[in-house]
Amino acid sequence: MKLRQIKEFIIEKLIFLSGILSILFVVLIFTFLLKEGFLFFKEISIKTFITGKYWYPISDPEQFGILPLILGSLIVTLGAIIVSVPLSIACAFYISEVAQGRIKDILKAGIEMLAAIPSVVLGFIGMTTLVPFLKNVFNLPTGLTALSGSIMLGLMAMPTIITISEDAINAVPKSYKEGALALGATRWQAMYRVIIHAALPGIIAASMLGIGRVIGETMAVMMITGNAAVIPTTFLQPVRTLTATIAAEMGETVHGSMHYYSLFAIGIILFVITFIINVTADMFLHRNKK
């Protein structure tokens, strides 16, 4: 009796502690990020930082404009959305509504495998296959472009989008589908007008979570987008993203320099963007639950 109570007590406290710890870590990381970034914003206003067109952190005079980087991230992400979202939704529908038996199992396993491939490996594969392919097809000076990044990142986002969309579609009561078919709807009409409609909040949340992953992704984009910090005008030119900038330059900066702090400032911007996306996705997911 006593012993059980003690055990309960310890377990309860341990769980509490781990909960608190994870929150603590987040707070610590965030404070650190803010502190380092803040030093930067004392010198340069957020506005010039975000709207500056030139990223020359080590030339003289140095210029810290991250507009090309933001647009680089944006164009790669936009491309990834175009590549992954429609395909993933179609795939989720195929798996939950059409595929049966073996094919379904194989597909699901395949998608899990895709999720398990480390992004470096995907970057590497992209570099040796996709990049030369795009170079030849579009007759470009280099295949290291926003498009290559978009395609690889789209692939990376697909497992998340597919799995969560599939859950959302499966959660749609079977009676909706029966109701639609009983009215003489074709399978496609039932899917398109009733099932998608009912699963939409979940599908949107799935897309946002998938894309959230894409925005934070670093390795693959660094390897295959060419890393040129210029304002992108097409998908077929090299771009540099926010994440790649941090990853590529952090090793080379002098600790405590403006350049060093500017990378943390980029981190803050990235944090804010991802945070907004996750919160929005969460809102959709919860609206779905209700």
Partner: peptide
């Protein structure tokens, strides 16, 4: 089958209006 189901309507045990 689609045409058949239009001609032969069905009302189910549990009301199943669409979420619209």
């Amino acid at each position: 089958v689609v045409e058949l189901r239009r001609r032969i309507g069905m009302v189910f045990q549990k009301p199943n209006p669409f979420p619209k």
